[in-house]
Amino acid sequence: MTTYDLIDEAVIDAPADAVWEALVAEFRGAGQWWVPHNTFTAVSGAPDTVGARVGVTVHTKGVDKGGLKLRFTSRTVAVEPGRRLDIEYVDGVFRGPSASFLLEPLEGGRTRISMHFTGRPHGWLKVLAKVADLGAEHSRGTLAAFESLNRQLSAVGR
């Protein structure tokens, strides 16, 4: 069985509190910086509250561009406000164990953001995982989102 264990990170030219607010807003459905690759919808509760559920759609060709839509649901399992958000995958094409978003303040008001993704494809995605490098696609999409976040937040600071 295919299991992914990936860590993607970037340095954002903004303080950790701004990065945290942008992360939580995105999971509420803001659609500001993870688009066109992913969109999020709060299903129940605030994303930075233990027990909250967020619907995730991965748009393989981009939002409104056709292509496969990979849908799954996450549940928040641990929160350290402003520093760490841990989730598990509970429904859809990915299932457990988790993803962790970690923010590390750096000198000069910058922040390192990392996503540690561990998950297993479920259902029909298990078949696709045998012929497509979903791990590489995941990292490409995550790093593009982090670059977009950096552009967004560094523009606000100007």
Rank of each mutant, 00 (worst) to 15 (best):
T2Q: 11
T2F: 13
T3D: 10
Y4L: 14
D5L: 04
L6S: 04
L6Q: 12
D8R: 10
E9Q: 14
A10V: 11
V11C: 06
I12S: 02
A14Q: 05
P15A: 14
A16P: 04
A16D: 07
A16V: 02
D17W: 08
A18R: 15
V19E: 00
L23F: 09
V24W: 01
V24P: 03
E26D: 05
F27I: 06
F27R: 14
F27D: 11
R28F: 04
R28V: 02
W34F: 12
V35A: 14
H37F: 14
T39W: 10
T41M: 07
A42T: 09
V43F: 05
S44L: 09
G45Y: 09
P47H: 03
P47F: 03
P47I: 06
P47S: 07
D48G: 04
T49R: 13
V50C: 09
V50R: 08
A52L: 02
A52S: 04
A52W: 03
T57I: 15
T57W: 06
V58D: 03
H59M: 03
K61M: 10
V63I: 10
D64H: 13
G67L: 02
G67Y: 00
G67D: 01
K69Q: 14
R71W: 00
F72G: 01
S74F: 00
R75Y: 02
T76I: 03
V77D: 09
V77Y: 00
V77C: 08
A78L: 05
E80L: 13
G82H: 12
R84G: 09
R84F: 06
R84C: 10
I87N: 07
D91W: 01
G92F: 00
V93T: 03
R95H: 13
G96P: 08
G96Q: 11
S100I: 15
S100H: 11
S100W: 03
L103I: 01
E104N: 12
E104M: 11
P105I: 08
P105R: 09
E107L: 11
E107V: 07
M115Q: 15
F117T: 00
T118S: 10
H122G: 03
H122W: 12
G123M: 02
W124R: 01
L125C: 05
K126E: 15
K126N: 10
K126C: 09
V127T: 13
L128I: 15
A129V: 03
K130L: 15
K130Y: 08
D133T: 00
L134K: 04
A136C: 07
A136D: 10
S139M: 12
T142D: 10
T142G: 08
L143Q: 12
L143K: 15
F146E: 06
S148F: 05
N150T: 11
L153R: 00
S154W: 01
A155M: 06
R158Q: 13
R158L: 12
